[in-house]
């Protein structure tokens, strides 16, 4: 769903066809190599929901480029996705940041707070059973459990730090932009 909504966001930003949309996604996410064929299933799903439509409705297959335009319902669906929190820790926020506009930043700032809170909840859950000290010479199972717990906590710390950086940058962008209106 989140990838589909990101594709929708790009279509709203500027109508496009599969390969071109894939290139635009790849240009925004370092290390990602989305192919044109990977974008088509998302476009077809969006078309089925009535959120995008083909510019030439007779174009089905072949070499011709099929350009997709957003519909009114698609714009509304995209706004709802961007403005409201998604289930935490699932990666929707990553895609929202990728296709955000300045107008969406206040909602996203709030969502970074909620995501950070979900990370803290997760840490609290993990730390509720801190276990004993690492003792690899004893049974491996408790050692493995502790190592996994610590790895999870470290990953959550990195995520919290990333969210804090994203939020600080968004707040700074809004502060600097507001005097100019």
């Amino acid at each position: 769903m989140s990838f589909q909504n990101a594709v929708l966001g790009l279509v709203i930003e500027r109508p496009g066809y599969g390969y071109e949309l894939a290139q635009r996604i790849n240009g925004r996410v370092t290390g990602l190599a989305v192919s044109g064929t990977a974008v088509y299933p998302a476009l077809v799903a969006l078309e089925t929901k009535g959120w995008v439509r083909r510019r030439d409705p007779t174009a089905r297959t072949g070499r011709g480029r099929i350009v997709f335009d957003p519909t009114h319902e698609g714009r509304e669906g995209f706004d709802a996705w961007m403005d409201h929190p998604s289930p935490p820790l699932r990666g929707d926020l990553r895609w929202k940041i990728t296709v955000a506009t300045f107008e969406k930043l206040p909602a996203l700032i709030e969502q970074t707070r909620e995501e950070e809170q979900a990370c803290l909840d997760r840490i609290e859950l993990l730390t509720s059973d801190a276990g004993g000290p690492l003792d690899p010479l004893a049974a491996w199972a408790p050692t493995g459990r502790l190592l996994l717990q610590r790895t999870d906590v470290k990953e959550l710390q990195m995520k919290i730090e990333a969210l804090q950086e994203v939020r600080a940058t968004m707040k700074q962008a809004l502060r600097q932009r507001s005097p100019r209106g």
Partner: peptide, 22 residues
């Protein structure tokens, strides 16, 4: 954060904002 493995509650502070777990 790994320093907090033994704590009951973890809060985070950045840019003047404190975020608490639910």
């Amino acid at each position: 954060v790994p320093d907090m493995l033994r704590s009951h509650t973890v809060m985070s502070l950045s840019d003047g904002e404190l975020i608490r777990p639910t």
